[in-house]
């Protein structure tokens, strides 16, 4: 089944626990979306952590036609201050743009979204919670729900989909994804939020059974150098 990312709401907000793989998913999503439409913008809203942010892949994204918005002083400023470019409002307000908001980890990282919450009207946005069941704090339903609730309370809007992105980097296997799917399923039923995508390396997605909830989203590791 081919992925049609245009079926998602115009504004896609990617949130989750630190290190769940939000940025990797967001960059992969932007790369695929740029093949399906023009006018794609990715906004790197991570003001919590200065490492492994989507702005590091700005030249790759831009060469694929994606507009990249990050700090007010450019992608490479490396300033350790909570500063966001004012131009983020352009793609959020422009109904012609397809937008991905790559947000920092946890509720702390999501706080910045509250400033834009007025634009996140039901139906106009998707807020995807990226779930990695191999992360220390999101290994059970209680941990995941606590993160979802904290982020929702901070932002002021609801999560609309779960992304099962359970992995162990290069050591990821089928069992990791299935473990994550079981947890995603449990959370999905408890909170009545659908599982929207199952993202994993292509070598793993090829082995997935086809009766799982959510569309399979094969990803590449853009954020991780070969030697890591």
């Amino acid at each position: 089944m081919t992925l049609d990312l245009m079926k998602d709401a115009r504004i896609r907000i990617i949130i989750g626990h630190y290190g769940s793989g939000k940025t990797e998913f967001a960059v992969n999503y932007a790369m695929l979306l740029s093949q399906q439409t023009s006018n794609v913008a990715i906004c790197d809203l991570d003001i919590v952590n200065p490492y492994f942010r989507s702005r590091e892949k700005a030249s790759l994204l831009e060469s694929n036609g994606v507009t990249v918005i990050s700090g007010a002083r450019g992608h490479n400023a490396n300033l350790d201050v909570p500063m966001v470019s004012p131009s983020i409002l352009a793609p959020i307000q422009n109904e012609e743009m397809q937008v991905i908001l790559d947000v920092g980890g946890d509720a702390v990282g999501a706080r910045i979204l509250a400033r834009f919450a007025a634009y996140f009207k039901p139906g106009a946005y998707d807020m995807f919670f990226v779930l990695n069941a191999n992360r220390e704090q999101t290994q059970d339903a209680q941990g995941v729900i606590s993160h979802i609730r904290n982020i929702e309370d901070t932002v002021g809007c609801k999560v609309t989909g779960i992304i099962n992105n359970t992995h162990l980097l290069r050591e990821s296997g089928l069992e990791d994804v299935l473990k994550g799917q079981k947890l995603a399923d449990e959370v999905s039923k408890l909170l009545n939020i659908p599982i929207r995508y199952i993202s994993s390396l292509e070598k793993v997605t090829r082995q997935l059974p086809n009766d799982l909830e959510g569309q399979v989203f094969p990803i590449k590791m853009y954020m991780r150098e070969d030697w890591m």
Partner: peptide
């Protein structure tokens, strides 16, 4: 079982 951790967290845990 293996867990996925960030270096700084792993130092603390260890």
């Amino acid at each position: 079982a293996k867990v996925l951790m960030k270096g700084n967290e792993a130092i603390g845990a260890a």
